[in-house]
Design a protein around this nucleic acid. Structure first.
Lengths: 211, 211
DNA sequence: ACCTGAACACCGTTCAAGT
DNA sequence: ACCTGAACACCGTTCAAGT
């Protein structure tokens, strides 16, 4: 076997490009990702990327792929479904919070994307093994996915309030409703993990009540 | 009072611009909204818009304002909280589904935006009147908002599957998980209103079990 | 085979100039 | 006072040309 000649930079590849794109999104936000910026990150002209991806949408799909590959979903076991449900929710939530700028990409939920389909399939396997019938499993998947993504977005959207609260300077909207004003300090001091747990409990108990 | 002289076009105004922007988003999607395109819609050069809005982000906030103004939230009454909760969820859901391309704008949930704060305050008033303490009311608001927006996004994201199912042509991702494949026909035939109701029941029952 | 450079039709935004 | 036109620094995308 021949020794690999070490050039100044590794050759371009789908995964190297997608990983670089995720790095830009994580550091500078979704809007900062452009073909030319991506090329610069890779030490190449932006147009070289078109050898590996047909367009920008395909690159964003590649970023989703990279993200969901990080989502380790354990194989079905005989653990009670409540525990499985809670653990999957926490795992997914942790992934979203590690990549807050990428949440809108995952919110789109394109099941036609192989990476999304693989992850959804793994969760379905868990739910079916836990005794859910096909229809309930699908509706439960929809419910939990919607909730976890929704909360992550709420969290990012209300972050300014919490940091304002930490600084003691509230961003009071003019003529805000008194009921909301009453709650602003509470919102500012809100423990998001706690709020997430509140809703997760609500959903688990609701599912128990249904079955 | 003087008769209004009818010129070829009405003068520019914040609300006229925001309404035109929403119309473009509804018809052609978020990406189609540009300053020049917006100007054309109003019969004006795109740069004229800068007289009324400092930048494009402000215009998007204006679109959120127009959308949330459509959200009629009734004043508190002595109706059981479960009914109030369900009705608010349905009203919000209906608004989102009437403007599917605008959902990402509402998902961001900037409470510092007066329009968002007003709507959130009105819902808080309902929950407080229904007997929720301040903390539970806030966490409940977070839960329901997250769920309704999350489901709407799930629905938009899985729409290709349902229309493919209607045409009888499935978009099968290569090497999809067998558990998911089993469920694809079900997903394609899914009644989204029904799935939404499933999760709403789950949450209402869960909230009942907590109190 | 893989990357570059120039080009095209767009962007958001600024600002001097017109009326 | 309100809008326009030209300009600036960017976009995504295509494609002939380079090595």
């Amino acid at each position: 076997m021949s020794a690999l000649s070490t050039h100044t930079r590794a050759p371009l590849s789908r995964s190297r490009i997608a990983t670089a794109a995720l790095a830009i999104v994580d550091r500078e936000g979704l809007d900062a990702l452009s073909m030319r910026r991506l090329g610069a990150e890779l030490g190449v002209e932006g147009m070289a990327v078109y050898r590996h991806f047909p367009n920008k949408a395909a690159i964003l799909a590649g970023v989703v792929e990279v993200l969901l590959a990080k989502l380790v979903i354990p194989p079905p076991s005989d653990v009670p479904w409540q525990a499985v449900f809670r653990e999957l929710s926490h795992t997914y939530r942790a992934l979203l919070l590690r990549h807050p700028h990428a949440i809108p990409l995952l919110a789109a939920l394109p099941l036609s994307d192989p990476a999304t389909a693989r992850a959804a399939g793994a969760v379905m396997a868990q739910l079916r093994a836990a005794g859910f019938d096909a229809q309930s499993a699908l509706k439960t998947l929809a419910t939990i996915t919607s909730y976890v993504i929704g909360v992550a977005q709420w969290e990012v959207g209300t972050a300014p309030y919490r940091s304002a609260g930490a600084r003691g300077s509230f961003v009071l909207p003019p003529a805000a409703d008194p009921y909301l004003v009453e709650l602003l300090p509470q919102l500012a001091a809100d423990d998001c993990d706690d709020t997430f747990e509140f809703g997760l409990d609500v959903i688990v108990r609701g599912l128990e009540a249904r079955s």
